[in-house]
Design a protein around this nucleic acid. Structure first.
Lengths: 359, 359
DNA sequence: TTGTATGCGTTATCAG
DNA sequence: CTGATAACGCATACAA
């Protein structure tokens, strides 16, 4: 590892001159010196020491990416099919822009903060962080932050979020189910915060538009450990008899449950319809192919990085809450039960009710 | 961000003393001073600047993780179901051990090397790197390196690899197919280097043990862009008529192809059997569930990190080539065709032939 | 056009 | 027990 000083000594010139050549400030250096230095740069394949750079400058060229692990959900969150695609896109964009990515996963938010601070990251991308944690981070870390999939009360704190038309997606999916004649729909969510909550709002609005009312008993919260506990699954199986459709908040769960139910003799979609959210690879591969809401995680990752770098370079404060479009993808996991729809509800939305979505 | 100097000034003592307290060298500091400093440490929640530390010390506490992207394979390699689980395990273990993870993906190996050097990473974990690239990296980077899934000629260069019983896995899978009466087996691989090549060796040995000979025309190389090109898939479809089983080098491909073939009316496993490798979530979810070779990527990730840290701390040079066990997982994607087996081959291995595996 | 001097935050050496 | 002081590698303001 050759240093600037080494090279300066070798050429009998000062470090300043070498540094200037490295940074392309050749206007202030004679052509001859430039050539000498560049020759040496090539010869020894000089690589700057970024620790030293971070020290003298304000910036570290590091972008921190944090996903608070949730022990209750998956073994490790990086393995989640949706997160991994997103993360891959973020990584490649960070690299393309000449930055470095450092990942911090932790269930302990204060440890996470210490890790960010200790490297003085230029900016931060936070995935699926809850509001309280965001506030804690924001209070200690002053550089730009971009959130992905966050819903926080706007009035409490400014934030930049690269989100999704979650409400619209859930709305359209619900409408799709209703139009196919489904009236007994269960809504399956990981939790009732953030993204899943907003999707539930969309679901409710669609029901309302059809003169139906969401019933809290149709809201099924599903957790990773349930798959392990036979009793929980039995109960879910039992509950499923009340429904013609399971509307899931993620492809991951939809696909897992489809597999579980079909193994127990439930025919999909004949006996029970399923829908997902995300459109990950899984949902295209499984049979019946999953009807779902598509988003573009690669685009999202890129946009998050672009936005963050814009903020870092202080060109501007970008739009504070982007909602990327979603698209209903109809495949084969939803049955059409027109003749079998609950007769007391018409197939058309009731007149006079018109709550917009994402207004 | 409070610094050591700030605190020293506040207390009217020297930075040395503060630093000593921070590092627990309290034997050389009076109790009173220790308490004063620790109070301040807490109060301002002091976080050390790691760039400064890296500069003065030999170590950076960074572990670099590199996966050379292969443009021909996936959009981004992090999204690969197997890699993402492995990566997640690596990340959590690195963090648990008090290190930081920096990811470098690049198709340009020299860019990758520069990134590693610029941060002076204490150690490196290389995933799926080919031998030539490893040599290049090794020539520029002198800190410990642990490989995952590498096969290189041992005589050329020392290396530490955390691998798998690839040969054994493929051997057992092939035997399984043979015992179920399959005689016309296609071997599908991404390429003919590294892991896939060793698996092919195992495949060949199993065939030999049954008095059969591997035919190079039964070796089908499959690439990501093939899925897009209709002509390629048509050809594969046409070829498939020659076989009773497709033995795939990864679950990823097995599952993708199963889906493709079953959509075109091929019954699985009645018309065509499939096997995979890895046992990712996908293979458990899909129906028919995939017969595959299980490995434990989480364990692998942990072991790789443990090994690397051992090397970094110079406790010892660990075993140079670990091969973690694999396990055949029989599910429903392989048909039993005992009555239909090629009559000129007996179901039992021929006598007198006895090439061991992984000897 | 080139060089000198200083500082970034930390650790380590050595002297008091 | 404590404190100067130098050093790590780099960038920059200022001199020459």
């Amino acid at each position: 590892m050759i240093t600037i000083k080494d090279m300066a000594d070798m050429l009998g010139i000062s470090t300043t001159t070498v540094s200037n050549v490295i940074h392309g400030k050749t206007s202030e250096v004679s052509q001859k010196t430039v050539e000498k230095v560049e020759k040496l740069l090539k010869e020894y394949d000089y690589v700057p020491n970024n620790s030293a750079r971070s020290l003298t400058q304000k910036c570290s060229k590091i972008i921190g990416v944090s996903l608070k692990g949730r022990k209750d959900q998956y073994d490790n969150i990086i393995a989640d099919p949706f997160f991994s695609v997103l993360l891959g896109a973020i990584e490649s964009e960070i690299r393309r822009r000449g930055y470095f990515m450092m990942i911090y996963t932790s269930d302990d938010i204060s440890e996470l903060i210490r890790n960010i601070l200790t490297w003085n990251a230029d900016g931060l991308i936070l995935l699926g962080i809850l509001h309280d944690d965001f506030v804690k981070i924001k209070s200690r870390y002053k550089n730009p932050i971009v959130l992905i999939d966050s819903y926080a009360p706007r009035d409490i704190m400014n934030y930049v979020n690269v989100g999704l038309e979650d409400e619209k997606g859930a709305y359209e999916m619900t409408v799709h189910l209703l139009e196919r004649g489904h009236r007994r729909i269960a809504f399956l969510a990981d939790n009732m915060e953030g993204v899943d909550y907003i999707r539930y709002i969309g679901h409710q609005k669609a029901l309302a538009r059809y003169g139906l009312k969401a019933d809290s008993k149709d809201l099924l919260i599903i957790r990773a450990e349930m798959m392990e506990r036979e009793a929980s699954m039995e109960e879910l199986f039992y509950l499923s008899r009340n429904y013609t459709a399971f509307m899931c908040c993620s492809d991951y769960w939809a696909v897992l449950l489809m597999s579980y139910f079909s193994d127990r003799g439930v025919r999909i979609p004949e006996d029970l319809s399923f829908t997902g959210f995300d459109d990950v690879l899984l949902s295209r591969i499984i049979r019946p192919a999953l009807t779902t809401v598509r988003q573009d995680p690669a685009k999202r990752g890129r946009l998050a990085v672009d936005t963050l770098i814009k903020m870092i370079q202080e060109e501007e404060i970008p739009e504070w809450d982007v909602k990327l479009p979603v698209e209903l993808v109809v495949r084969d996991s939803v049955k059409t039960i027109s003749a079998y729809g609950n007769p007391e509800h018409s197939m058309e939305p009731e007149r006079g009710i018109d709550d917009g979505v994402d207004e």
